[in-house]
């Protein structure tokens, strides 16, 4: 469904993505693991086509079409969306309006109230609240997941949906993502949590702007832990050495 070939991207003259290759299959939850600063969010922005994230080299294909030069809106209308690691605040916009915007392209998605209930926010308490006032970080992240549910995209890129979520609710959030996936949404799940990665169908490990390994989540988690623990070159791994283990 999503295929990325030889992606190079520099930010402020610094190479961040360096020949990245990734394939996400239709219908799967694909976890993306990697240490802080390895380029996970950058990859998410590049797939979404945000301004300033046009790759210098490489191609991105979605559902058989090349989208490397498409605008954000075009990509969204093809069925891609992104839930930001730190969602935007939006002064004066109510949660109801925000979710309605997402739902415009959603068609058969659950109602807005249902989307909120699914992410653990009682609709009656939240619909009329604005996004910039009195929402905790975790609540805001849940609203972002509700927006993805309302939009019902073909591919949802979730950038650390687990960060800011209280420990007791983590399992619920993972269940929301699984439910999303059961409704036919392919998920690229950026996470630091092993248990989230394990709940995925497949996983990839990102280091220094490259995918070093893709495979069974368990195997990728082990690879990540073993190699990143002993790697003392933060974001500058001895690529050749690791290459052999791919």
């Amino acid at each position: 469904m999503l295929k990325i070939e030889g992606l190079f991207l520099e930010l402020d003259g610094r190479p961040i993505l360096r020949g990245l290759e990734l394939e996400v299959a239709e219908g799967e939850i694909h976890a993306l693991l990697g240490a802080n600063g390895t380029g996970k969010s950058t990859l998410a922005y590049t797939i979404m086509g945000l301004a300033g994230y046009r790759p210098q080299r490489g191609r991105i294909y979605f559902a058989g079409q090349e989208i490397t030069d498409r605008s954000v809106t075009e990509r969204a209308r093809l069925g891609i969306t992104l839930a930001w690691q730190q969602p935007a605040s939006f002064e004066g916009l109510t949660i109801k309006e925000y979710l309605e915007i997402a739902r415009q392209s959603g068609g058969t998605s659950p109602t807005i109230a249902e989307c909120l209930e699914l992410v653990g926010l009682p609709a009656a308490n939240y619909l009329a609240r604005t996004l910039n006032e009195h929402l905790s970080g975790g609540e805001r992240k849940r609203v972002e997941l509700a927006a993805v549910l309302a939009m019902n995209p073909r591919l949802a890129i979730l950038d650390e949906p687990d960060s800011g979520i209280d420990v007791l609710s983590l399992a619920d959030i993972m269940e929301v993502i699984r439910g999303m996936n059961r409704r036919g949404i392919t998920v690229l799940l950026i996470t630091h949590r092993e248990e989230f990665a394990r709940a995925a169908h497949r996983a990839s490990h990102l280091c220094a702007g490259r995918v070093l390994k893709t495979g069974e989540p368990e195997e990728v988690v082990r690879f990540y832990k073993e190699n990143c623990k002993r790697c003392d070159h933060v974001n500058e791994p001895e690529l050749e050495q690791l290459e052999g283990q791919r």
Partner: peptide, 19 residues
């Protein structure tokens, strides 16, 4: 964010300004 939900740039601007 609004464009990633399918709004055009112009629609997104209108939405932010309205809020």
């Amino acid at each position: 964010t609004l464009m990633a939900r399918g709004l055009s740039e112009e629609e997104a601007v209108e939405t932010v300004v309205r809020g």
